[in-house]
Simulated assay, not measured.
Amino acid sequence: MRLNYVETGSADSPVVLLGSSLGASHAMWAPQVDVLAERYRVIAFDHRGHGESEVPDGPYTIDDLGGDVVELLDALEVEQASYVGISLGGSVGLWLAINAPDRIHRLVAICPPTNTAENPQPWTERAAQVRADGTQSITEATLGRWFRPEFTEIADIRKMLEDCPDEGYAAACEALSTMNLLPGLAGITAPVLLITTDGDASVPPETVVPLASQIPGAHLEIIENAAHLVSYSHPDLVNPLLLTHLS
């Protein structure tokens, strides 16, 4: 599987991977890339079916999405990297920490779903809707969950969602419909920072907060007055947390 990626920063610096949300491309990390690239070799990638990555027919699984990242590390000849992921990208990061622990140095999981298999129907229904009517049919509802009403700088994110390949989005929804990462959390050895928000309607904070006691040594930060895509809306709060944890 060929994943599209953009590399920034010195080739001699430690590597940090950036994994995006469902429906987003690597471009959603624009508020973080330059800051991180001052210290790290930053590799922002598109999940399969997203951005400019290949779009195989679905359904996908979380094993597929995580395995793609391992293949990317192999292709880049990177033995170990730190990883920052949000939403679906955070789930992929947790999968990597569970299933490829020797490849992950430090992990930041922002608003990560962990047991969406517990209630698969919303994901299978959304997959069907997108296959029938396109990603445009879910854009407004998605933006309403991702941002608080007062945050209006969303034109680029709107276009990103509408440009996401329909099959890629739907197939990734199907990956979420079968995903349960909870059994593996206790075996994670990488230092983990969990970030959630008080206003996340996509991955409610009450599903993220308990993870801090299930992942050994995990640190939890709750950002107030923010919604799901907090890395984009509140980089002034998120970026210092990333720099502190990754150092």
Rank of each mutant, 00 (worst) to 15 (best):
E174T: 06
C173W: 00
V230D: 07
P216A: 14
F151A: 09
L161Q: 06
L229G: 12
M179G: 12
Y169M: 05
D163H: 13
H219R: 15
R148A: 07
P149E: 05
M160N: 13
I188E: 01
E206S: 15
F151Q: 06
Y169S: 10
V230W: 00
R158M: 03
C164A: 15
L185F: 06
H234D: 11
D163C: 09
P204T: 11
E150K: 04
I215R: 09
V209S: 14
T178E: 00
W146R: 05
S213P: 09
L181E: 01
Q214F: 03
I154D: 09
E162F: 05
A212Q: 05
E167M: 03
L182P: 12
H234R: 14
A170E: 02
E206A: 14
A201I: 03
E153A: 14
S202N: 12
K159E: 13
E206M: 11
K159N: 14
A226M: 04
G199A: 14
L185K: 15
V203E: 04
V192T: 14
G168A: 12
V208E: 06
E206F: 12
A218M: 03
A226W: 00
R148N: 08
I157N: 06
I223Y: 01
L176W: 00
C173M: 03
A155N: 10
D198F: 04
G217V: 09
I215N: 11
S202V: 05
G199S: 14
A171R: 02
V208P: 09
E206K: 15
P216Y: 01
E224M: 04
E206R: 14
A227I: 02
K159V: 10
E167A: 14
E167Q: 06
A212R: 08
A155G: 12
F151M: 04
I188D: 00
P235C: 07
A175W: 00
P191M: 02
V230P: 06
Y169D: 04
N225V: 05
V192Y: 00
A155E: 12
T178D: 01
C164V: 06
A201P: 01
L229D: 07
P149I: 04
D156A: 15
H219P: 03
A212F: 07
E174R: 01
G168T: 08
A170D: 07
D200V: 04
L161G: 08
E206Q: 15
T196I: 06
P205E: 10
L176D: 02
I154M: 04
D198H: 11
E221P: 11
A190Q: 01
